[in-house]
């Protein structure tokens, strides 16, 4: 199971990945080093593959920048569970195949130090505080997740 990093409401894209880096930092590992740097400067050094971010309402509000998703993905984050997501961020998660789950009950119950894992196929989050189920994604979304992201989905489409 992954460890949980818990944050509050309205975690915005500028703290997820500062705007000043958006046109200059393109390397995935370097992007990961800036993840959450203006909210939790230690995050980049503490995070391990499989860890999960849990947050409150409106996660990812602000800019449309995909680095705000990619920085977490390249850090090894396995999923983000929040009470709700800002809509472009949610789309960017799908397009980067980073599971984003709007589960208010789980988001409120889980805390830093808890452990969890997401079983996408079964539609369940198993945690040290119990299990939380979620509805399947719409077919349009599932197809992108299944391909491993929008680039891969489009690549399959163009290869045909």
């Amino acid at each position: 199971m992954g460890r949980i990093f818990k944050y509050g409401d309205d975690v915005n894209t500028d703290v997820l990945f500062p705007g000043k880096h958006t046109y200059t930092v393109t390397d995935p590992q370097e992007m990961a080093q800036h993840a959450l740097e203006d909210l939790d400067p230690e995050f980049a050094t503490k995070v391990k593959p499989g860890d999960i971010i849990v947050a409150g309402k409106n996660f990812g509000c602000g800019s449309s920048r995909e680095q705000a998703v990619l920085a977490l993905k390249y850090s090894g984050v396995a999923a983000v569970i929040a009470e709700s997501f800002a809509r472009i961020y949610y789309r960017n998660c799908i397009n980067s195949a980073l599971p984003a789950l709007a589960l208010p009950e789980a988001a409120r119950a889980l805390n830093s130090g808890d452990e969890a894992e997401v079983d996408l196929a079964a539609g369940v989050v198993r945690t040290s505080r119990g299990e939380y189920t979620f509805a399947p994604f719409p077919p349009e979304v599932q197809a992108i997740l299944d391909a491993g992201g929008l680039i891969e989905y489009l690549r399959d489409r163009f290869a045909k």
Partner: peptide, 10 residues
């Protein structure tokens, strides 16, 4: 409406 970069490429 706003969208992401990869979607714009798409």
């Amino acid at each position: 409406a706003g969208i992401g970069r990869t979607e714009a490429a798409g």
